[in-house]
Design a protein around this nucleic acid. Structure first.
Lengths: 274, 274
DNA sequence: CGTTCCCTTGAAATATTTCAATTATAGTGG
DNA sequence: CCACTATAATTGAAATATTTCAAGGGAACG
């Protein structure tokens, strides 16, 4: 059971010749490009009449799983907009241990956290094959100067990112581990829906460990929380395949009721022992 | 009781010589103003020769302890730059409970989190008497259009805020409560130093509860952590007065060694009882 | 000088991490 | 296509960390 076709979407969007890649490291830059208009729509920025159409085209960056769009310390030349695939954004603590700061998918802007240092302060690692639009920051600034709307959109983007981070901080500080996992799933579902994918059923692209790192808990706790959410009937879990059964409840959950406790409404018979 | 006057807000922000103030609610707008150059220096933005000097002046907003610069849901008209005093930035969860998202002091920009919604998503509450520079967002955009440096500075500001939030998320997720408190104090010390105040000795303006809310723990735990840090000699605590004895150690601390346990290297005889 | 809010401290109740063992799953090369 | 190895996921039980509940002492404000 549980065939989750999910975002199997796929492989090559266009067929590429295939590039010489050193495993793990080099970037495969393809020749395909994206127009300014396409870029704006990817960013959910809907051009107004006043916006002049620029003839510019932007190059793409193709990544295979495990490859990075940029690394900590690299000079910030470009920002990246996800066109396809999903990534994790990580930082490293003093001991070099990685900490997941965000998961990115279609439409997300990557690299903005490095603007104030003019260098990247995080790494964007592909969790699946990815296709990114490369936006040279200089070019971006030129464009925003000629288009106040774009400039405002950029402020909006950064502002939104601040809010997202605060929301996460809020989750981390107020909520127990199970509730954090529940809300994480709810968020993923909502984002999927916003992109036109199924909000009921999807495949997580990251490991339990990465989820734990993102949510400030351990992989074991994430695993237990998923099991618990399945047990109380809010989701169905099969490895990385998730089916959402009750999104509103997931998004509101504060704690999973202890297992031997009769379920609040129309007490389900029993989950039996343990 | 919960008297939430709610969106009683407020009349106009601008130009009233003196507003009718209901205690706790209204804003005292003073007549003093700040020049563009002063504003830039407050923001740590050092003008380059190319920056044209604008004759514009910005009004101030005076707050007494407990008053707010803006409230959740209010339309975003202006951003605020702290000139004097300290504030807490809070949000509210579904139950209306407040959660401290940030503490602000001189030079900090307030309100940017509301840009993407064009409405405030947080409240800025004065922890002491405060003096803020009011920067109408429209005006700000006009200025940034005529000064690419200012535009870049704004991106930098927002970018820096994203990094700060991520750093906090990192603290919340990886560190135990004592370590969070330790790093919080280290941060405060560093920011004080950057503003020219003493980094060794300062007075916290917020309650234990507010610190706890910010750090994702309870007031009791904050209190115990402070006591613990005092006991191991990293700080001296007397109510809200803090003296920093070992800043580098504070900033690195991961856990407070259990009191009865012999210290790892060259087993120190004893910290004695308890 | 009383009232209110704030801080500290202890002990019991909970939540989470850690350690450890087992079972899946995916990728690789015969 | 299968076996093989490495990585990922689940689960239990003990060790820890944190919250909660409760009570008492201080400081601040009118």
């Amino acid at each position: 059971m549980l065939t989750v076709p999910a975002t199997t979407m796929n492989q090559t969007l266009f067929n590429l010749p295939f590039s010489t890649e050193t495993p793990e490291e080099a970037h495969a830059v393809r020749q395909s490009t994206t127009s300014y208009a396409e870029l704006l729509s990817l960013l959910q920025f809907h051009a107004t009449p006043s916006t002049r159409v620029e003839p510019i085209r932007f190059q793409h960056l193709r990544l295979r799983r495990g490859q990075r769009a940029y690394r900590i310390g690299h000079q910030l030349e470009s920002l990246f907009v996800v066109r396809f695939g999903s990534l994790k954004v990580i930082s490293r603590d003093d001991a070099g241990e990685e900490k997941v700061q965000a998961f990115a998918m279609k439409g997300d802007l990557l690299g903005a956290d490095g603007i104030h240092q003019q260098a990247h302060v995080s790494e964007a690692v592909a969790l699946s094959d990815c296709d990114l639009v490369v936006v040279p920051f200089r070019r971006f600034r030129e464009l925003s100067r000629s288009s106040p709307e774009l400039e405002l959109a950029m402020y909006g983007f950064l502002s939104r990112e601040i809010c997202r981070e605060r929301k996460i901080s809020g989750m981390l500080s107020r909520l127990g581990a199970e509730a954090r996992v529940a809300r994480f799933l709810a968020q993923v579902a909502v984002r999927h829906a916003a992109l036109g994918f199924s909000e009921k059923s999807f495949e997580l692209r990251m490991t339990r460990q990465e989820i734990g790192s993102y949510l400030g808990t351990t992989l074991e706790t994430v695993s237990r929380a998923l099991t618990g959410l399945d047990r109380i009937g809010l989701i169905r879990v099969d490895n990385r395949n998730i089916i959402i059964l009750d999104l509103p409840a997931l998004a509101k959950l504060r704690r999973i009721p202890p297992s031997k406790c009769p379920l609040p409404p129309t007490a389900g018979q029993n989950d039996a022992a343990r």
